Structures are given as structure tokens and as C-alpha cells.
Amino acid sequence: MTYRIVALEGVDGSGKSTLLKSLQTSLSTHAKVVHARPARALSKAFRRIAEDGRPENLYQDALPAHFRHSAYLLESAVQFRYEQQRFEQADFVIFDRWRHTWAVYCEDVVEHRDWFARIETLLPHPDVLFWLRVDPEVAYERLVARQDRWVEAYSPAGLRAKITKLCERYEEVMRASGAVVLDGTGPAAEVHAEALAALAAEPTASAG
């Protein structure tokens, strides 16, 4: 691959979208940047099927988690085929989330586990993986401030509990990921500067 893959991971409210936009702006001054997300098509399809225009009906709660995990792996495995032309025109492809999200938000794959493990090996490795680590209460406050759809679907106590559980799961999943850890609770400008410095220090790797 001629382009570099940069992936951002972190719980909802960790600042991924803010960092993605700022990185895209900075890198675009001297490089071609593409924004992507693994399994975006299926996420949209699941939302249409399960929610039917009602934000309180979250597809994440309606569809079996292990089924979503399996489906996301399948789409992501072929995404680098159907997006090949667009990706190869870029210098950087920045992914909002990576496969670690499924390990955090979804249950383990249940059926045909060995086959899905082999499918997962088809996914390239990011040249740089960022993990925006954030305190659960900060993430909760950010979701409330932006009136995230989760705020409509859960009670305050329920949302706090969900965010706390997800943050704990990220601690487990990202422990051996080799990610560059960023303090998602810090000012956006500082997080951005630290991410840029890490990108500059990281040699271009083979993403095969």
C-alpha cells in the first residue's frame, strides 16, 4: 500500500471526531487525506433496520452483539477492495475506529469462530493507532453537552454505567495493542499537537 493508515480508537465522548477533523485539516495542507470508518455501510443498514426513525431504539441493543461483530469483520475484510481506488489516491487514510471497537462494544464471535479469526488476518495493520483514553465522567459530560442520541436512549445513571463499563473494557483491549495513548481529557489543541508529533516520529510502515 502506498498510503498510511491512521486509526483512532476510544469510547464515545473521548474526542475522536474532534481529533480526526483537526488532523485532516493539518495533514491536508501537504498531503491527500481520506476519512474512513470500518464497516460504515453495515452500521447504517443496521440503524435503518432496527431503529425505524426512533432514536430511543438503538440498533446496538436490538441486534445481537456477536452477530454485529461477525458482520463488521466481513465488511471490513472487503472494504479495502471496494474502496481500493479511493484509498490509493490518498497519502493518509484516517479511520474513525478500528477493529478494537468491536472487541469493546460487541460480544465475541460465536459461530464459525476459526473462520472469522482467519478473516480478521486479512485486515491491514494501521501505521499508527491512537487510543484516546478518557475518564468516564468526562465522556459522559461530553455526550450530554452535544445531546448525543445515547442521552435519549438511556437514563443518566444508565448512561454513566454504560460509559464506565466501556472504558474498563478499553483498558483490557488496548493493553497489548501497541497504540499511541493520548490523554483525551486534555485540551483539544494539546491532543492534536501530540498526535502530529507521533505521526512525524513514526516511519512509514508496510500495511500489508
Rank of each mutant, 00 (worst) to 15 (best):
R86A: 05
V78K: 03
D52W: 02
Y105S: 13
R68Q: 12
E83F: 13
Q84I: 04
R86I: 00
D91K: 03
R68V: 07
Q79D: 01
A62S: 15
L63E: 01
A71Q: 11
Q79G: 14
F87S: 03
F87W: 06
F95A: 07
L63F: 03
A45G: 03
G53M: 05
Q60P: 04
Q89F: 10
A77L: 13
A77R: 05
D61K: 08
H66G: 10
L73R: 06
S76I: 12
Y82E: 04
K44M: 11
E83S: 03
V78T: 15
Q84M: 07
W98S: 12
P64E: 02
R86L: 13
R81Q: 11
L42N: 05
V93F: 12
G53C: 05
R97K: 04
R47G: 07
A65P: 01
S70D: 04
A103Y: 07
L73N: 09
V93A: 11
F67R: 08
L73A: 13
F67H: 13
F95P: 10
F80N: 10
F92S: 03
E75S: 08
R47V: 04
Q89L: 12
D52T: 07
I49N: 06
P55I: 11
R99V: 08
D91P: 04
Y59M: 07
N57T: 04
Q89G: 11
W98Q: 12
A90V: 07
R99E: 05
H69K: 02
E88N: 01
Q79H: 15
A65G: 02
E83Y: 13
I49V: 11
D96Q: 06
R68W: 00
I49G: 05
A62P: 06
Y105M: 11
F46L: 02
S76H: 11
R54K: 15
A103T: 10
G53L: 12
R68I: 01
R68P: 00
Q85A: 14
R48F: 00
I94E: 09
A65D: 01
I94D: 08
F80W: 08
F46N: 00
K44G: 03
A103Q: 13
F95L: 12
Q89I: 05
V93C: 11
Q60T: 09
E51D: 06
A103I: 09
R97T: 11
A62T: 14
V104D: 01
A90T: 15
R68H: 00
N57S: 02
R47I: 07
A65W: 06
I94K: 13
G53W: 06
H100F: 15
F46A: 00
L63A: 13
L73P: 03
H69C: 10
